[in-house]
Amino acid sequence: MRRGLWEWLALIIVLLTVGGVLLTPLFIPFLDQYFIKAEHPDAIVVKGYVGQHGGYEPKIIKVRANETVRIAFYAMDLPQSLSIDALNLDTGVVVPEVTEEKVIEVKFTTPGIYVFRNTVPNGPMSPFQIGYIVVEGGQK
């Protein structure tokens, strides 16, 4: 028995639907750009994940010495913070879906590698939530 027009149409719709949904993960980086509101276009966006992605995304930020940069910090899963020991700077606790993202301004004078970390105790994974700021020397 041959398939009729409606059957072919249904088959195409099913394949497109199933394929479309299953392929969604491939498009997440693009969807991220589209759906996350770009409220801080001049800032480096850092997303904090306690349970995955190695703690912060991006995990390494590169800046130049004596350059003032803004970091917009978003908590993605649990309440957390971004704290830079060397500058004694801390965003304070950012609660996902509850508090707004926090923006801090940083300026490093000495080239080197600096650590940023989560200072909010939020479970066994929080000590591993560490990121790095690589400060490169000289002017552009």
């Binding site: 099913v14 639907t17 199933v18 479309g20 949904v21 299953l22 969604t24 993960p25 997440i28 349970g51 995955q52 993605m76 899963d77 649990l78 996902p96």
Partner: peptide, 17 residues
């Protein structure tokens, strides 16, 4: 079915909270 598949994908790669 689309919602169901989305549930599976979100469960696998989405926010662990």
């Amino acid at each position: 079915l689309a919602v169901f598949l989305l549930i599976i994908i979100a469960g696998l790669i989405g926010n662990p909270t």
